[in-house]
Write a protein that binds this DNA or RNA. Structure first.
Length: 557
RNA sequence: GCGCCUAUAGCUCAGCGGAUCAGAGCGCCGGCCUCCGGAGCCGGGUGCGCAGGUUCGAGUCCUGCUAGGCGCACCA
């Protein structure tokens, strides 16, 4: 159980004090209908106070009174006792702005130093069980560029959810059943025969990529050429290749800092009869019908555009059916919320899967699908063109070799997952100033350097008196440090992980400004100790933010 | 034809349930180191695709249009 972050405590106190003011002003204002309580937010501009509430604007419309008047009445009835409020003003159309005594920031700094590696955690999620499924690339070839984006977003989202009090499982779905892996096996067999000098052709819709040429030799070494005479060879080759490719995916992702709790294999799952069970449930609920020799699901009853085939006329299942069974399985494992990260090419498929889950008895918000948009790689300012047909596509490992994990993750996480993005390879590769990831890491290295220097110098006796921190650059930095738990929570609940790179950049900027304005190691022992505490707190927040992003926080660069 | 995403500074992008910001990084120009890391700091900007609408107030919400990407299978 982590302690309540100061920033949340302050906001709660303000909310409660505002609610009391509303209560006291009831004689003047009357009772608002359907009002659920005051909200307090962090203003974007510091000129608008440390915190602000739009409560008077909300009340104004409910009470049919000018918001500014409501705000003034609330201000008159506001009792700052028990809060940090030092000053309160009515501003703009009726905002109530609060300026707090800086001691709340000193308390925040103390909390940061106390919590250290846990600073930023909160319990807002109340232990909700969430499954985040991401990447889930088909085991038919190496991971491609967009997998790196999905991996970064999914992993950091999962981390943010964990840090804000959710119980999270990271899952990778291995599509090792169906036609595509049969084609994979046939393609491999062709390459093996080719290796042995036999005539061979890659089947229509198969996999012509170079990687199978390499794997063919491996397969021959591992399984022996005799396998090609075996009547059951395709199943053997399929299992062998899939295992080999999945292993490669696992290792590549691990090197990228992404570890999954579960690798969920479709083939094994389907063998367990779960798919048939879904059909039975739907049948029992009268949601299936026969037409043209196929079995249809009445998905339009659940908001889909049209009804969908679940069992084709040849008896095979369409993809959505086992997928629905899989998602049912996720829910039966106790997860209360399912988050999937998919590419934009799958979005048309979302309504029918949601329809199936609803038909199985789950609410429409149980499954949330986030779209990770495509990545275009820029080199020398021009897009790197890829042609999948010719087997030339940009691989995740190509990017990581060239840009490195830190730059790749940071760059992907700078953008909203929902926006198509250009990845500027030249900028990401720069080991210098202009690269945003180095800007942030540099701040961390600089802090480490100061702390090293401080450790070398003799320290006089005494404790840090944080009240010595009064410079705007000091307070501005401390203020942003205090925001961290809220930033993490917002990144998690709004599914906007790119907030975190922005936050880290903000911290770096504020730190550099502070560094430029204030000398840390000076003659004044008390001031030096106070500033060292601030510097150390910055180190902690920056390091924790980078940790959530999966980017290293170097001590030296 | 229908649906989803996108359109904000020269470039790449933020702008979280209207009001209390048009912003960041890169690029460009000009300043700042006897001192804890100058990989830094400071200064320089008449930009929200177009047209309507709602409102006291609209990058933000609604409608239409334009442009780019993606989808709309008895493929996965």
């Amino acid at each position: 159980m982590s302690e309540l972050p100061v920033v949340f405590r302050v906001q709660r106190e303000l909310r409660e004090a505002l609610d009391r003011a509303i209560d006291r002003a009831r004689a003047t204002l009357g009772s608002p209908q359907g009002f659920t309580g005051a909200t307090v937010e962090v203003p974007r501009q510091s000129a608008h106070g440390d915190f602000a509430s739009n409560v008077a604007l909300e009340l104004g419309s409910r009470l049919r009174r000018p918001p500014r008047q409501v705000a003034q009445v609330l201000a008159d009835h506001f009792d700052p006792a028990g809060t940090w409020v030092r000053e309160l003003e009515v501003a703009g159309p009726g905002f109530v702005n609060f300026r707090l005594h800086p001691s709340w920031l000193y308390e925040a700094i103390e909390q940061i130093l106390r919590q250290d590696a846990d600073y930023g955690r909160s319990e807002l999620g109340a232990g909700l069980k969430v499954l985040v499924e991401f990447v889930s690339a088909n085991p038919t070839g190496p991971l491609v560029l967009v997998a790196a984006r999905a991996a970064a977003v999914g992993d950091t989202l999962a981390s943010c959810l964990e840090w804000s009090g959710h119980r999270v499982e990271r899952e990778y779905y291995v599509n090792d059943a169906g036609r595509q892996v049969e084609l994979l096996a046939q393609s491999l067999e062709a390459r093996m025969r080719e290796r042995l000098g036999e005539p061979a052709v890659i089947p229509e819709g198969g996999y012509p990529g170079q990687y199978l040429v390499d794997l063919a030799q491996e397969a021959l070494d591992a399984l022996g050429p005799g396998i090609l005479q075996d009547p059951g060879r395709l199943a053997v080759l399929r299992d062998w290749t899939v295992a080999r490719l999945v292993q490669a995916h696992r290792e590549e992702l691990a090197a990228y800092g992404v570890r999954f709790d579960t690798w969920f294999h479709e083939a094994a799952f389907r063998a367990g009869g779960a798919v048939e069970e879904v059909l039975e449930i739907l049948q029992a609920r009268g949601l299936l019908y026969e037409r043209d020799g196929a079995r249809w699901f009445a998905s339009t009853r659940f908001g889909d555009d049209k009804d969908r085939v679940l069992v084709k006329s040849d008896g095979e299942y369409t993809y959505v059916l086992p997928d629905a069974a899989y998602h049912l399985n996720k829910l039966r494992r106790g997860h209360q919320k399912l988050i999937n990260l998919w590419g934009p090419d799958h979005h048309g498929y979302i309504p029918r899967l949601k329809a199936l889950l609803e038909a199985l008895g789950y609410g429409p918000d149980t499954l949330e699908v986030l779209t990770v948009q495509w990545v275009r790689l820029l080199r020398g300012g021009d897009p790197v063109r890829l042609s999948k047909r010719g087997g030339v596509t940009i691989l995740m490992r190509d990017l990581l070799e060239e840009a490195g994990t830190d730059a790749a993750r940071f760059f992907f996480l700078m953008r909203s997952h929902d926006s198509p993005m250009d990845f500027d390879l030249d900028l990401a590769k720069l080991r210098t100033a202009q690269n945003p990831v180095y800007y942030v890491q540099y701040a961390h290295a600089r802090i480490a350097s100061i702390l090293r220097e401080a450790a070398r110098r003799p320290q006089g006796p005494g404790t840090a008196d944080l009240a010595r921190l009064t410079d705007p650059s000091e307070l501005g930095l401390a203020r942003r440090l205090a925001d961290f738990p809220e930033e993490v929570a917002l990144a998690a609940t709004a599914r906007e992980v790119h907030r975190l790179t922005r936050y880290a950049t903000d911290l770096a900027t504020l730190f550099h400004k502070f560094y430029d304005t204030c000398r840390v190691l000076g003659e004044d022992g008390g001031l030096t100790r106070a500033r060292l505490a601030l510097v150390d707190a910055t180190r902690i927040a920056l390091r924790n933010a980078l940790r959530l992003l999966g980017v290293s926080a170097p001590e030296r660069m």
